[in-house]
Write a protein that binds this DNA or RNA. Structure first.
Lengths: 343, 343
DNA sequence: CTGAAAGCGCTAACAT
DNA sequence: ATGTTAGCGCTTTCAG
């Protein structure tokens, strides 16, 4: 393929008739080089098409200018916009980003750990606890890292996410305001902090509305479309149905909506549904889903900014940054059907 | 963060009481090392938690064991499963993969080119023409590369995709078999080869069915949901409507379905719709979308396998690998409504 | 302002 | 079977 091997700093030096040290300086500290020499060097660079060999540079420096972003699932509709925020901020600092994909496979996680271990990345952005942190010895020498969405491990890794409690609270409050009291929470989970926080918001809202704990319906779920559909089926086997479904995320809500549709119910006439995240699909559903929007680009930007703070200061300024989620009102919520109003 | 700097080969050598060369050999060519020494080395490695510094190794070797995958849009629902195929195959060869994200920004593309230029990746997987190939000098020294979905550039970069013509043909043929003759093709494009090939399949099918070119309705589109919706609006401004919409991909089909739903039409009673790709969402639509499935994992696997062929042989075996797409019949197609049957 | 030279961690001859 | 050593391309003292 390659016609010739890439130009090295030496090629440039030869052509510019200077030493390699001068070339290096001309690139990194141009002010320390005479104007005329700088010119010659630049020309030589142009001629050769030289780019510094990042391997060699990083080996020498002991650090790279790449940030590794490790995510369990690239396909997650929540991921892609965060990435944009992450990327833009990284570029602003002269860093590039690389994406690692674990599919929740610890083995994969380990490989990225090795990658980090050899200084191939200067920092790490972590989505929801994916690293095999059991691995004692390695944990110690993680580069500066920040988590997204949820705190990672017990350790001192700061994170940025959204205020899940507040977001969930906004959703319940809307439902309550519309007149609902029998509101099911779909997608509770003890393993995902974000989910249990949303559950907290739900409880807080019902507490405030004076709905006794006994009237609350809670179903577990892992946040997939399937889990939403499944939870719905379980619910229909019980005798008491809610008038509204508050779902832990949009995927779950979509599952619920599909299930409801399959049973011939109309949303929001028969049942109201809310989601959380505002994934692209939410607005394309019929009816369009009322949900809580995550400021994704902003989350990405903050997370990366925080990482750069860590990279320069040794002092971690904030240990937790929570952004404000917004309620997006669309068409999946209305007053409860007569059936429920009678009670 | 890091308690100490990572262990080097020298640390291991010291502890094992051997030379660094022996350590290197014990790792890479264990059969050339005495059993007893190998044991000592392995213990030392365990103690220190040593991992070879990939930077140094690659610098020395002049190549890395990472494959760069560059995609214009990570969020593309088509992307994520391909990635899985890519990853699995890469791992089987002892390689890791890194994902680059261009957002169709040439500047971004350039950065990845630099990355490649410094041997940070041994090979390249390219999704639909994203590199700034205008850049003369760099083009020449691309590492072994393979494209996915569509051929890249003019050059000799082989690619693997799906037989778009055959796939599209399966979709038209179904529509024809159901009795449709007035079939609109939504999403024609001169810039995307895959799309124009699907158009070819459409034309071939109608030719075979004896539908004159004059009765065909072709609308442009870039494959987004919006483009589908838009095309539909244009169509409703004309006097003749088709009985079926054959969409260039699922996203477009979803846009068409949304538009049709908004106008109060029922699918498939009033209009039939087909897509292409079989993205996850397709099965969740109401009605579930009849579409053409791309064997995504297989595509990923083949692409990576082809890349490794390139990496070893210098002979490029195949220059184009086309996988067979399957028709997935769901509920968005039926016989044309009476309105059309009258003709 | 510029050059010479050491050395980052590793592998692969080349010795022994 | 094992050790010694050159050198991958680069940055950075240290001299001049």
């Amino acid at each position: 393929m390659s016609t010739s091997s890439p130009a090295t700093i030496e090629d440039v030096a030869r052509i510019a008739q200077v030493s390699i040290a001068t070339v290096s300086r001309a690139i990194h500290t141009p002010e320390k080089v005479a104007n005329s020499t700088r010119l010659k060097v630049n020309q030589a660079i142009a001629i050769t098409g030289y780019t510094t060999n990042a391997m060699a540079r990083s080996l020498r420096l002991g650090r790279s200018n790449m940030i590794l972003v490790v995510a369990p699932d690239i396909g997650d509709p929540n991921f892609s916009n965060i990435l944009v925020g992450l990327e833009n901020e990284a570029r602003a600092h002269g860093y590039g980003i690389l994406i690692g994909h674990t599919q929740n496979d610890p083995q994969r996680g380990l490989e990225y750990l090795k990658f980090l271990n050899s200084n191939q990345a200067a920092g790490l952005i972590l989505f929801t606890g994916i690293l095999p942190f059991g691995h004692q010895s390695m944990t110690a020498r993680l580069p500066p890292s920040v988590g997204v969405f949820e705190p990672v491990y017990n350790g001192g890794i700061p994170y940025v996410g959204v205020d899940d409690i507040e977001g969930a609270r906004k959703a319940v409050d809307l439902l309550i305001a519309e007149g609902h009291r029998k509101i099911a929470f779909i997608g509770d989970s003890r393993t995902r902090l974000a989910y249990s926080r949303r559950r907290q918001g739900y409880d807080a809202g019902l507490d405030a509305a004076g709905v006794p704990a006994g009237e609350r319906i809670i179903l577990e779920g892992d946040g997939t479309i399937e889990s939403g559909r499944l939870a719905l089926e379980q619910l229909f086997m019980r005798d008491t149905l809610p008038s509204a479904f508050m779902c832990v995320n949009d995927q779950t809500a979509i599952g619920v909506m599909i299930g409801l549709g399959a049973r011939g119910y109309d949303i929001p006439t028969d049942f109201s549904v809310t989601g959380f995240d505002d994934v692209p699909q939410a607005s394309f559903m019929t009816p369009a889903l009322t949900t809580i929007r995550q400021p994704r680009t902003a989350i990405g930007k903050s997370a990366m900014a925080l990482l750069f703070e860590l990279l320069s200061d040794s002092e971690p300024t904030d240990t937790e940054i929570l952004l404000r989620p917004d309620l997006i009102v669309r068409n999946s919520v209305s007053a409860p059907s007569r059936r429920f109003q009678k009670r």
